[in-house]
Nucleic acid binder design. Sequence first.
DNA 1: TTGCTTTTCCCCTTTTCTTCGCCTATGCTT
DNA 2: AAGCATAGGCGAAGAAAAGGGGAAAAGCAA
Lengths: 208, 208
Amino acid sequence: MALTPRQKQVLDFIAAYQVENGYSPSYEEIARALDLASIATVHKHISALQKKNYLSRGHNQSRSVDVAPRYLQEQRRNRVQASLEVPLVGTIAAGRPVETFDEKASVSFADFVGHKDTYALRVRGDSMIEDHICEGDMILVENTNEARDGDIVVALVGGSETTLKRFYHEPGNVIRLQPANSTMSPIRVPAGEVSVQGRLLAVLRKYQ
Amino acid sequence: MALTPRQKQVLDFIAAYQVENGYSPSYEEIARALDLASIATVHKHISALQKKNYLSRGHNQSRSVDVAPRYLQEQRRNRVQASLEVPLVGTIAAGRPVETFDEKASVSFADFVGHKDTYALRVRGDSMIEDHICEGDMILVENTNEARDGDIVVALVGGSETTLKRFYHEPGNVIRLQPANSTMSPIRVPAGEVSVQGRLLAVLRKYQ
DNA sequence: TTGCTTTTCCCCTTTTCTTCGCCTATGCTT
DNA sequence: AAGCATAGGCGAAGAAAAGGGGAAAAGCAA
């Protein structure tokens, strides 16, 4: 589902316009910007972009096109930057010397992201503290709707609450969202009222 | 299913073009870049690459070739891959929706390494468990000999044991190395017998 | 209702991909 | 040496997608 040059131009213009004005351009404005004589052409481009999941829009609603998160992510990913790697020199343990190993000599961010569709969140609250995920930690989340029992997921419950919990199926088409905090109770809801927004890939914690 | 030299050239060009432009090259452009007179030759290369699972494409769709994850992985292994950034989309907490902030924010490895002399270690044992540093976690360590009270440091004690502990000065030129585990006792040694090998910068934990 | 906007229909040209036949090397197998 | 497979290459014809247009119908908000 790759973009064509013209489609990318349309998408770039819409994204820039939104940043500039805070709302979306009309077809007329897009046509002027791209030097098109007919708004029918704009409509075709936008339909194509929507089919490729780069845009969303409401039917017959004016100025309702909106760039999908996918685009913003791809933009960032294409920002070329020097690769940062640090040497991985061994393991450390209480009461033992550093054991050096030479198998994998370095660590890079790619080892922690590794997926195309990833985003980050900052953790607030202590609901996963017994899994050693703390307030202020950064988590990397794979953007997926699928989860297996025991996965730690970002879950949207009842359309309004988003939360980080362990995911389990229970009998009767019920999902249990299990906090890792003995002072909190698990959430049990019908499967239809939960949507998985992502799966935990990594925890990053920075000191100082 | 290894690549031939020419196939690798085609693949590398396509990947570079995509990063550069945000969309795929046409056969015509590939032919020009590789100094080929016929786009039929390009077509053959691309078909071969698809058969070897290095590319995907849509039938009869222009500029639809896309490099497969396989290629990106192999690149990453060769350290040619640029450092990745992931969008930071907000905070997550139990019982509250994701609060998105400023769409521009992103996280990169640079945020965790900085420009310091840094190395990585894998953690073994539970001596820092109450600071939520677990067995198997990767830690990033700044290569320094200096530490302030309360810093978590990599310390070499008595020339043989290396350990991860919190660092404190005590009266009488004594250093206390404090584990974060109530079942363990702090280590108290004369300052001359301890050398700080590094200071904890970050904890990275990977799932799956 | 009016004005702004989106959607749809039918038309067109250009770009791009696919396929076909044919060619030259190189290396491996009888 | 002959036969065969494979990588690499060329040119041209045909077909489909991308890109573009005008006009009119249809939605929506003031």
